[in-house]
Design a protein around this nucleic acid. Structure first.
Lengths: 340, 340
DNA sequence: TCTCGTTCTGGGAGCGCTCCCAGAAAATGT
DNA sequence: ACATTTTCTGGGAGCGCTCCCAGAACGAGA
């Protein structure tokens, strides 16, 4: 089929360009029979309006960007991000938005991508994954660019930014409280990086749980990890000398690494050391471990982010919107739920 | 900054719209000093041309789509796809193309996404992951839509389509030959789905290796899997009664599942059963296993796909381009390389 | 029947660029 | 010096749509 334009359809349907446009955009004020006639022609010709022309005239591209900063370049090692991406993609699709993906892989990339993301007429809005402290710059730049955006995960600078996050503090609190109830006394934690809010919050929840239950907070039982498997492994190595009877790992991947270290040391899970992770990745499939963990509602989380972004696009950017979602403790085997 | 246009920049630089356009697009025939003056103004104002306007006028959007059909909805369980996505994203970035991501999640999605992908003025070209037989329709549609596209992985219908693939037959051949050299006699295989060309090809390579080395092809030693962990697990269960001394799994994920079954049966790897996988996912981190496997050059593979697509866009769609890349056997522990 | 809303329709202008062409300016040759 | 070629520059047209406005068509009320 040759390249059709609105005008061609108009001619075929015996109406004007404007009327076809109205039909296309579901405007009222088109006589029913005319509307149907036009729709028939559109249908039979397979006509679809030219996206760029439409975007130019309407100043609305129906495209949103998803930016993963550099710090999530281990991006595709941790199944969390793919999952999130899927949720976002689905939501976009449902809302008739197209998703443009930007993976920042280096400093030069960052500049290039920033330029690309902020250029006019291409994106209606942007989702940015909040990562380490080091990523704050790109987030800040985006805020300054005054483009509708929502940050995924609370960023460090929150003034005037919309974001979605899960209630990390509370989730961690519940996880650790669960371990305490099971009778664990020396509960260690492998935290996320201090440079990430998720790491900070989960640690805060851990501390609060200990405090509320009257347990000491022992610095020896707190080791910083980096959300990778090997990070968890080495953190656990350090931790072993402090003889913990339970470990709350701030991510499943780190829990996997840590459990590897535990097994290597000849200890049993959960008999010697109980484990709770965070994320609920489908890694039972991979590691064969039934990990007690916090289930993040990843898919809904992504959907929520998209929903808010669309709200921002359609109804203006202020006030900033903020959503905190709850995460749920999933009790499986590694916490030794039945051992008391 | 207010919304600037070409005309504004032109005024500030004391030249015409056209000259600014020429500077922007690196056209020759602009006097050096004029060019610099214009560049300065562009720089200092932070001006960036309106993407939609540009796309409309030039009929070139600098955006390519990446479509994952429904069959890869387990998409984000198998780390292969995220990896591939990363390679593609990087390559796009390097070539100043933007990547639009389409994840088909249901039949309705497929229609919607197809409409979206093929609408004029939005994408310059499309990458499509070839999946099961069931996805051939969307690929066929895309071909019919006559839009520059490259299929990732050989599709069933290859007439007139450009694609990139890895040499699955040869890779599988090498893997199995390696096992034979190590002295294995009863080599089983867990294949990919018969409905995928990758599954078919890897099986063909397996058979060829046996034949060339004078070993019997035993139907009992061939079980179809589905590229998932649990698929591998159940396939192995079936296989155990045939008492194989080695298994060539058509994907790492399936190998992981299969090894789980082997361990549950109280057998040792590689002493009782040697293993070779396919993909070389970074799953040693997760499963702790040092799997001998075929390394797919995933990142380069993605880059190649993008490269070809751009070639198609810039230099016309025929003849169709086809690239077959070699994959390499990575010998680790599970094949028992030292056991003879 | 005519008048006065109301609903519907068509055409013009314009979104911000690129591309073409004609003419100006500069460079070259005689 | 002038003619001729080559390089550079500006303006017009147009990409395919949306949006606004004016006027046509239709209906209801008197």
């Amino acid at each position: 089929m040759p390249d059709l334009t609105l005008e061609d359809i108009a001619k075929q349907a015996g109406v004007s360009r404007s009327t076809v446009s109205r039909v296309l955009n579901d405007h009222p004020n088109v006589r029913q029979d005319v509307r149907e006639r036009v729709q028939d022609v559109i249908e039979s010709t397979g006509f679809r309006p030219h996206a760029a022309a439409r975007a130019l005239a309407s100043q609305h591209s129906w495209t949103v960007g998803l930016v993963y900063p550099h710090s999530v370049s281990f991006f595709f090692t941790d199944p969390y991000y793919p999952q999130l991406t899927k949720g976002i993609a689905q939501a976009c699709n449902q809302n008739n938005y197209t998703l443009a993906l930007f993976l920042v892989d280096s400093k030069e990339d960052e500049k290039k991508i920033f330029t690309s993301v902020t250029r006019k007429g291409f994106l209606d809005g942007v989702l940015v994954q909040s990562g380490h402290h080091g990523d704050q710059q790109i987030i800040g730049n985006l805020v300054d660019a005054n483009i509708p955006q929502v940050v995924i995960g609370r960023p460090f600078r929150t003034d005037n930014v919309s974001y979605v996050d899960i209630d990390n503090i509370n989730a961690a609190f519940n996880a650790v409280t669960h371990l305490i109830r099971l009778g664990c006394k020396r509960i260690a934690t492998i935290t996320g990086p201090e440079r990430s809010t998720a790491g900070l919050d989960r640690k805060a929840g851990y501390i609060r749980a200990l405090r509320e239950r009257g347990l000491d907070v022992n610095e020896k039982l707190i080791v910083e990890g980096d959300f990778t498997e090997s990070g968890g492994y080495y953190a656990m190595k350090k931790l072993l000398s402090a003889r913990p009877d339970a470990v709350f790992a701030a991510s499943d991947i780190m829990a996997v690494g840590a459990m590897r270290a535990v097994r290597e040391a000849g200890l049993q899970i959960p008999a010697d050391i109980a484990f709770v992770g965070f994320d609920d990745l489908p890694l039972a499939a991979l590691s064969g471990v039934q990990l007690t963990t916090i289930r993040q509602p990843v898919i809904q989380f992504g959907a929520k982010a998209v929903e808010i972004l669309i709200d921002l696009i359609e109804n203006g950017m202020k006030p900033p919107r903020r959503i905190i979602m709850e995460a749920e403790l999933v009790i499986r085997e590694t916490c030794g739920a039945g051992k008391e």
